[in-house]
Write a protein that binds this DNA or RNA. Structure first.
Lengths: 151, 151
DNA sequence: CAGTATACGACTAATTTGGTCGGCCTTACA
DNA sequence: TGTAAGGCCGACCAAATTAGTCGTATACTG
């Protein structure tokens, strides 16, 4: 539990793959899907979603496909997950307009909202480029870590 | 997405409720369920789970019920969630014994494992007592925050 | 021994997620 | 200029997970 959906996983994998192939002008959904052995049509839908939210640029027609809309460093894991899975909250009820149904239950949620922000912060601090980097894990100053934040 | 299950929510709410009533020797599942308007039998199962994992003490019979097994400060949100929802990983595949099915997909997961640890760290740093405290949000040094961690 | 409560497992229902299908629109290029 | 590769989109079905219910056994109190 508390896990990403497969769709978000696929999306991240695909973006990483695109980031790893900057030379090619565009890769089709099928290309990426085959590379990872995931359902092509499903990936297609995901990439379409990412395109609509501006993370990818697409090109129809022969030799068409997708490419990152920005530098891999400028795309955070947070944006990807948000685009695919929609806004997430660790609490079941959003403390938006309507409040919570269960009478006093929201008392739990307020402190957990901070947890939520922390998670979002971590996710925002990780870029697609970081994912590429990590594949060949740094041997030297490994300990310095990837993330540092205070809430 | 990335949200707690209702069961975990209920569990946290119930523990908070128990923490708020330290004077009473035990509260029944029904008492708590009624207080929050949640299904009594479902809550019962959750509390039983928490009892089995040692977070609660239970007493059968008349005037029986549940009470915190430890001080509210010594019970972390992490333990509660873990007890109810089982171990969670932000990645779809655990990097345990078998590795991942999808050929190269795990390259994504490794960096995300750190995110996972961060989340676990935040959750571990929040106790049931903190949930109680937060209900009357501190007016003064509000800005100091609840959590501070480096990964 | 009667009533209240936990303990536990099986079962069903609801929701979410994963995945498929079919049709339409765009583009390169022969 | 027409055809095939490929994106775009919505509806749909299937699988998995989560939520919730029921029944029964067991434990404790008076």
């Amino acid at each position: 539990m508390l896990k990403l959906t497969k769709k978000a996983d696929y999306g991240l994998m695909a973006l990483k793959y695109l980031a790893e192939h900057p030379e090619t002008p565009a890769l089709s959904a099928k290309d990426v899907a085959d590379a990872y052995g995931i359902p092509a049509q499903l990936l297609a839908k995901i990439l379409q979603r990412l395109t609509k939210t501006g993370l990818l640029r697409s090109q129809a027609g022969i030799n068409g496909g997708y490419a990152l809309a920005r530098d891999a460093r400028q795309i955070s894991a947070y944006e990807v997950i948000l685009a695919i899975d929609g806004p997430f909250f660790i609490t079941s009820c959003t403390k938006g307009a309507h409040g919570c149904e269960l009478t006093p239950s929201c008392t739990i949620k307020e402190p957990l909202a901070r947890v939520n922000e922390t998670i979002a912060g971590v996710l925002k601090s990780i870029s697609i480029h970081d994912l590429v980097e990590q594949e060949h894990p740094p041997q030297g100053g490994d300990k310095k870590g990837l993330v540092s934040l205070t809430v």
